[in-house]
């Protein structure tokens, strides 16, 4: 797909609303004071979805070569994976 082709405004609005909903979900999990490995992994999964939505649909990387999308995904897997590892160590 050509990078010059704008994505529809309705689609961008839907992505924005999904990001808002996921942020509220993150906040509610924090307010509920829930802890543990399952909650930590859930929060990291929500964060990964949000970051990839921003990268692909706001930054526009979905229209670029696989390499650039892969860099953003690998970045999150490395950073998020190491964070998950550190939190798992803390729980042991």
């Amino acid at each position: 797909m050509d990078n010059a082709k704008p994505q529809s405004n309705l689609f961008s609005t839907v992505i924005w609303l999904v990001l808002v909903a996921l942020t509220i979900m993150t906040f509610c999990l924090g307010e509920a004071g829930m802890t543990g490995k399952g909650v930590m992994l859930t929060l990291l999964a929500i964060t990964m979805i949000k970051s990839q939505l921003v990268a692909n649909y706001f930054m526009g990387l979905r229209n670029t070569k696989l390499l650039w999308r892969a860099i953003m995904l690998v970045y999150f897997f490395i950073v998020g994976g190491l964070i998950a590892l550190a939190y798992t160590i803390a729980l042991m």
Binding site: A4, S12, T13, W16, L19, Y57, F58
Partner: peptide, 27 residues
């Protein structure tokens, strides 16, 4: 946490406005 969450919503909305700005200039 409330300030953090509001700031997240603010930045996400700001980013959305930027997406609309880019779409506008492409037209």
């Amino acid at each position: 946490r409330t300030s953090g969450a509001i700031n997240t919503l603010v930045l996400i909305t700001s980013s959305y406005f930027v997406v609309r700005g880019v779409a506008a200039i492409k037209s």
